[in-house]
Structures are given as C-alpha cells and as structure tokens.
Design a protein around this nucleic acid. Structure first.
Length: 225
DNA sequence: GCGACAG
DNA sequence: ATCTTGTCGC
C-alpha cells in the first residue's frame, strides 16, 4: 500500500479533492489489437485479507495473455463514495506485477459517475497514468431511462442533483439489465461504451471483469484455506 | 434526523 | 462484497 494512504474519511475526501482536477475525461479508444486489463477484488473481512486480480486480455481475440494476483490487508472500510481507498492499494500491486503495460484498465465500479467525479476507475487512472474506464452493475445514486432491448442500446446516466450526464446505461445483452459505463481517465464516453461492448461476449459483464472476478475469488479461497 | 448508497 | 438451494431458460 502506498506509504501515505489515507486512514480517515476526512483524509480520503481531501485526497479526492486534490486529484479530481487531474482526470482527463476524453481520449481515443484502444487499438484493435490492444491489451486490456480487467481488475477486481475479493475480501475476507473476518480474516482481514484482501486479494486483487489483474487479467490481461487481447481485445481482438479476448484470449487471456497474462494474469496476476496480489494479497494484502484491508486498508479502509466500505464507505459509499470512498470505495477506491478500500480497493486500490491491492489493485495497484496486482497491476505492477504484469509484465506488459495495459493499453486500458477496466474497473468494476465507476469513474466520473461519482459524487465528486472521482470514482475508483478515475482515481486509478490518475495514480497510474493508465487509460481507464468503469463498468458498474448498479446505478448507485444516479438515474437513467431504460435503454432499448437490443444489445448496444444506451441511455444517459444522469446525476439527479445537477442533471449532468455522468455515464451511460448500456445493454450488453438482450433480456438482461443494463450495465453502467463511465469514463475513467484519458478516454471519452463514446469510446468507453464501444470498448465495453467489444469486451462483452455472451454475458452481461465484460470478459475482463468476469475473468478478474473469478480469479480473485479463487485466489482468496486459496489464501484463507 | 433518517435512509440510500459503486464493491 | 458476502451469506446460499434449487430452479427456470437457452
């Protein structure tokens, strides 16, 4: 974990305030043959163990190129709006162990769709300089109209306080609930949506997230047994 | 004051 | 996130 990692909510809020202006909310999508990393985290709060996984996929084939895992101690409680402080220390360790540098990192959660516009995907992007985007499973505090039933349909994800568009509800699969895509860092929303769609094959969630999720669960089970 | 609230 | 069986559907 970074040496100066916050331990209180007040410190965490101050960090968000400092980093929020560094997010670059536009940029190109990845090249057709890019290497895309998916990251996810699993916890055992009772044993104070957290395991992060990073899985690198080829965007063109969705084949796994590389996988890493990192284990740590729980650094922060779950507080809505401060999830990055709980997840990122171990995620940073897992990413650092990859032999290739990802062209894009896909996070399980939000980027700009965040009360202070610094969800974990944007936070990770600012800390590493990597291109990032977030794909979340629930709309958090935001509002949206149902996108059309067909794969690829989108609808704006809006901040009910300001009316500002913070992301998109995206139907990745017919007959299932949409996912919620938002910009992380150095990529635009249209590019984030298109890339998420390209990473989705037969399931609601992108393959990056599915692979990272199953890997960190398996690694956690192995770590505590 | 109370509830809701990414994972 | 996590606790958890069977079950409906492709």
């Amino acid at each position: 974990m970074p040496a100066d990692w916050p331990t209180t909510e007040a410190e965490a809020l101050a960090v968000q305030q400092r980093l929020r202006g560094l997010v670059e909310p536009s940029g190109p999508g990845p090249a057709p043959d890019a290497l895309i990393a998916g990251v996810d985290v699993a916890y055992d709060d009772d044993r104070d163990v957290v395991v992060a996984a990073a899985v690198l996929l080829s965007l063109s084939t969705l084949a796994v190129v590389e996988e890493t895992t990192a284990t740590g101690r729980i650094s922060f409680p779950y507080v809505p709006g401060l999830l990055a402080f709980r997840e990122l220390p171990t995620v940073l360790d897992a990413l650092a162990d990859l032999r290739h540098t990802p062209d894009l990192v896909v996070c399980d959660g939000y980027g700009l769709a965040h009360p202070r516009r610094l969800g974990l995907a944007s936070h990770l992007g600012v800390l590493t300089g990597l291109r990032t985007l977030g794909v979340a499973k629930t709309p958090f505090t935001f509002v949206f109209d149902q996108p059309g039933p067909e794969r690829g349909a989108t609808a704006p994800l809006l901040d009910p306080e300001t009316g500002e568009q913070v992301g998109a509800a995206l139907r990745t699969r017919e007959g299932t609930k949409p996912v919620f895509v938002s910009v992380g860092h150095r990529i635009g929303l249209a590019e984030s949506v298109a890339t998420t769609l390209n990473l989705t094959a037969g399931y609601r969630q992108p393959e990056t997230t599915r692979r990272a999720d199953s890997l960190c669960r398996r690694a956690l089970a192995a770590a505590v047994s």
